[in-house]
Structure formats: structure tokens, C-alpha cells
């Protein structure tokens, strides 16, 4: 067991997979010599050499295109898009090419690519470098989407994403990079589509993702002081979506809250609310409540950004209000 930062766990998890599969390569802007603008790929160039860890020009379409073309001809690839907002620049390759090619060729083409990208707010970067874009990715048939919340899960889900033969978007949260946690020794391999109950409770279920997980846990702590026993689920994966874990938790608690960093409309919580409303309606003792960032571009000033993204305080208050 070693304590490790979420940031270091990224390079550690990639290295685990690069050692296992000598075909695996990675490419992206400033990922090799500089170790990444967020220092999430430090040491990989030194360990695996310039043929396997490659710097690219500022060409997001060329990056994802090259990843896809290599993957469909037998070389698995990890591609980095520096900030998740930049996915908009290469959305065609992600949404129309990687995601659809297998289906439209009658299964002839397999695209084992992991698209790593730094997602989410809290860094005061302003609207074009802060958004949580998980809903952009989740809505596309043919893409898998994961977002770890702890260093251990970074490693386990990285392995799962790399070993999965389909394209996987791997969302690394910028505001979690400096956080630390235990990472067990030895190989860690998770399964995509498995959520984790990170706190057990009986009165309500809180489902959260990435940065919202530690906040939901802190809110649950405060709710406990009020006599409300909250179960917290770390979703970890949006596609595949672990509806079993959510439905069985709701069957127990009868109440559901989602805590989402993405702007409100079409956030993943809406999908979960609809599934629970349809399939667990008679388990519910009250309305499903979504706690989200408002439907706005993110502001830069810290006071404004902190008001926008669900805080521990806001999660606590919104839950207490409806649980009363």
C-alpha cells in the first residue's frame, strides 16, 4: 500500500498497462518531453521511449484520427486531449468516426482507443477550460465513459479502459489531481460499468461522479449529524451504467439525489432519474432531486465559480430541505 496523488496515479496506471502490452502507444500535445501540462504523464517518455510516447502538433483531429487509424489496424492507443473543452474541436472523430465505425461496417472494425482528458472546474480557468463535458460523451452510442474519483480507481479504471476493445473516454478531474489516496501494491484492474457504494446508509441515496464524490461524502457526514443516514454511490462509469447498484440502493432508501458537475440540461442524473422513475417508481418515497451546476458557462472568478459548482454546503442544504 502506498499513498499516491491522483496526478501520479495517472502515469502509474498508464505505465502498468504500457509494461503489460508492448504494442500500447500514446500521443498528445506536450505529453512526452514536458510530461503533460498537468504533469500527468511525467516519466513515461523516459520509461517507454519516444516511439511509444509521442508529442504532437496542436491538431486535435489529427491526434484522435491517428489514434483511431492505428487502433483499427492493430495498435491500441491512449490519446490525450489536454482540456476536455477541446473535445469540441475534434468532436467529429469522437462522435461520428470512432463511435460509429464498428456498427456501420457490420462489425469489421475494432477501435481500442482511450481518450484521456482533463475535465471539470475549480481551477478558475474560465468558461473554455473548466467545463464538465461528461454529458457530451455519454450521449453518443458507441462510446464508453469513465471518471474516477480516487487514485486507486484511476489505476484500476485505466487498466479497464485500456483493455477494453471499444473507445473509452477517460475523464481525469483537474481539481482532484492534487488529492491523495492509498493505492495497493500489484496490478489493479477494475471492470467498466461497476459503481461503488462508498458509504452505506438507509434514508437516502446520493449518486455522484468524480469531484462530486468527496463532496457528497462530506455532505453525508453532516447529514449524519442531523440524523439522516445517506448512502453514497460513486458512479465511476457512465457508459456502461451500473443501474443495478443504483436501483438496489433506492429500493433500500426510497430517496434519490444526484450530484452533478455538468451543466444541468441532459446531465447524467436526468438519465438516472428517468430510469429510477420508470423502474423503481414504487420504491420511491419522494421526488428525485438533481443537484447540478446551473445551466450556464462557468465563470472565472473564484467566488462565482464556487457558487456554480455544487459545494458540500449546497449538497447538504438541498438534501436537508427535501428530507425534512
Amino acid at each position: 500500500m502506498a499513498e499516491m496523488s491522483y496526478r501520479d496515479a495517472i502515469a502509474y496506471g498508464i505505465a502498468q498497462e504500457m509494461r503489460r502490452d508492448p504494442r500500447l502507444v500514446m500521443l498528445g500535445e506536450d505529453i512526452a518531453a514536458a510530461g503533460g501540462v498537468f504533469k500527468t504523464t511525467v516519466g513515461l517518455l523516459e520509461q517507454f521511449g519516444p516511439d511509444r510516447v509521442r508529442d504532437t502538433p496542436i491538431s486535435e483531429q489529427a491526434i484522435l484520427g491517428a489514434a483511431m487509424g492505428a487502433a483499427m489496424t492493430g495498435i491500441p492507443v491512449i490519446a490525450e486531449i489536454m482540456f476536455s473543452d477541446f473535445i469540441a474541436v475534434c468532436f467529429d472523430i469522437l462522435a461520428n468516426q470512432m463511435a460509429k465505425t464498428r456498427y456501420m461496417t457490420g462489425g469489421q472494425v475494432t477501435v481500442p482507443v482511450v481518450i484521456r482528458t482533463h475535465n471539470g472546474g475549480g481551477a478558475r480557468f474560465g468558461a473554455q477550460h473548466s467545463q464538465s463535458v461528461e454529458n457530451w460523451c455519454m450521449m453518443i452510442p458507441g462510446l464508453k465513459v469513465v471518471a474516477p474519483s480516487t487514485p486507486r480507481d484511476v489505476v484500476g479504471l485505466m487498466a479497464a479502459a485500456v483493455r477494453d476493445p471499444d473507445p473509452v473516454v477517460f475523464l481525469e478531474h483537474k481539481s482532484l489531481l492534487a488529492t491523495k489516496g492509498e493505492v495497493p501494491e500489484g496490478e489493479i484492474v477494475d471492470e467498466l460499468g461497476v459503481a461503488k457504494v462508498v458509504r452505506e446508509g438507509t434514508d437516502c441515496t446520493i449518486v455522484a461522479l468524480a469531484l462530486m464524490v468527496p463532496r457528497a461524502l462530506q455532505a453525508a457526514e453532516r447529514l449524519a449529524a442531523e440524523g439522516i443516514s445517506a448512502e453514497v454511490i460513486d458512479l465511476r462509469s457512465l457508459v456502461p451504467l451500473d443501474t443495478q447498484t443504483i436501483l438496489s440502493s433506492v429500493a433500500k432508501t426510497g430517496r434519490l439525489f444526484t450530484v452533478e458537475e455538468n451543466p444541468r440540461l441532459c446531465g447524467w442524473g436526468a438519465e438516472i432519474a428517468s430510469i429510477v422513475g420508470h423502474e423503481a417508481f414504487w420504491d420511491l418515497d419522494g421526488p428525485v432531486v438533481r443537484i447540478t451546476t446551473p445551466h450556464i458557462p462557468l465563470p472565472a472568478a473564484e467566488t462565482l465559480e464556487d457558487m456554480a459548482i455544487p459545494s458540500v454546503d449546497r449538497i447538504y442544504k438541498e438534501i436537508v430541505e427535501v428530507m425534512d
Binding site: G65, I93, Q97
Partner: peptide
């Protein structure tokens, strides 16, 4: 390796196949 209907994308993808051949 495919016929692609969004202008331009396949040129980027074709690079990947060429890169893969180079690596292999």
C-alpha cells in the same frame, strides 16, 4: 479500410493506419 462521409476526417484516420504500419 472504409468510406467516410464527413469531409476531411478520414485523412486523419488514414494517418493512423500509416503510423501503425510504420510501428509494426
Amino acid at each position: 479500410m472504409g468510406s467516410y462521409a464527413i469531409i476531411g476526417a478520414h485523412l486523419c484516420i488514414a494517418n493512423g493506419a500509416a503510423w501503425s504500419a510504420q510501428m509494426r
